[in-house]
Amino acid sequence: MIDPATGRNQRMIELTIDGRTVSVPEGSTILDACRTLEIDTPTLCYLENLTPVNVCRVCVVELEGSRVLVPSCSRKVEPKMVVRTDSERVRLSRKMVYEFLGSSTDLSFAPGEVHRQMESYEAKPDRFGARTLPAKSGERDHAHAGHHQPAVAGHAQTVFQPVKVDNDLYVRDYSRCILCYKCVEACGEDAQNTFAISVAGRGFDARISTEYATPLPDSACVYCGNCIAVCPTGALMAKSEHDLRERGQWEPAKQSVTSTICPYCGVGCTLELHVQDNRIVKATSPLDHSVTSGHLCIKGRFGWEFVQNLGPLTSRDAP
């Protein structure tokens, strides 16, 4: 098969998934092969424009000869692999991952796909008891590695905590954070290379953090918002969206998405403008566009406010 990107001839690898034979180009992952066969495989930490980190483990599959399940998003196909995606073990692991995340984080802003999968795997996050109340502001930021206070008996510990609002462009609601590492990757080598955030702490106290949990305006953040774009659960959110949601005015049903080109420099980044009631409420970029791969800069992501004023021309006055 000729790779359309490189024009080179590619070796094909044949493997068996759920009893069906499939042939995919060398270097593909099991997930790629599953998708070729249209096998519905859930993912959370995987995204096309980022390096797979295989940490959520919701895409695990059973591989003959492997003692443990393997992450399909990052495991490369090998000839004669025999993979099962529908076994009891696979179903249990996926269900448990959803239950663990559902019981410890707030998934209410996760896309419908996540909730559909949770239903199909019969995940019941309530099995672990009532969720603990939110931690005090900053408490989780100061957890010391290797030490913890056991939960109040009968309660399921959570990462619930107050929303961090420290700038006008985006908010960080870490109660929703499933620690998928995507934001760290987007801020780091996979896109922006600013390295303003990292995973800090360890275990259940691991969290996304700036150095010393300093507020974003004191950090290295350059507000490209690429972390928001890759966040799968709404933990990172443009303030424009956050404020509308807070006011109960966020209405996806009334929103349209129009794709256009960023008005600033000459790179030609595709912007998808999310418009509600003739107002831009959010700007994104498609993952599959060769110019941006879904990434933008501060101007493209947030610099559209200047067209927002609905009054006569004078009120859209130059500053």
Binding site: T258, T260, G266, G268, L273, V275, I280, P312
Partner: peptide, 26 residues
């Protein structure tokens, strides 16, 4: 770039569509 239809050409000579997402004000 957001209140009318048309095209723009980027630095790499790539012609791309701009589209109307908003009604212009006033």
């Amino acid at each position: 770039w957001c209140e009318s239809e048309g095209t723009v050409t980027s630095s790499e000579r790539r012609v791309q569509r701009v589209r109307k997402a908003l009604e212009p004000p006033g």
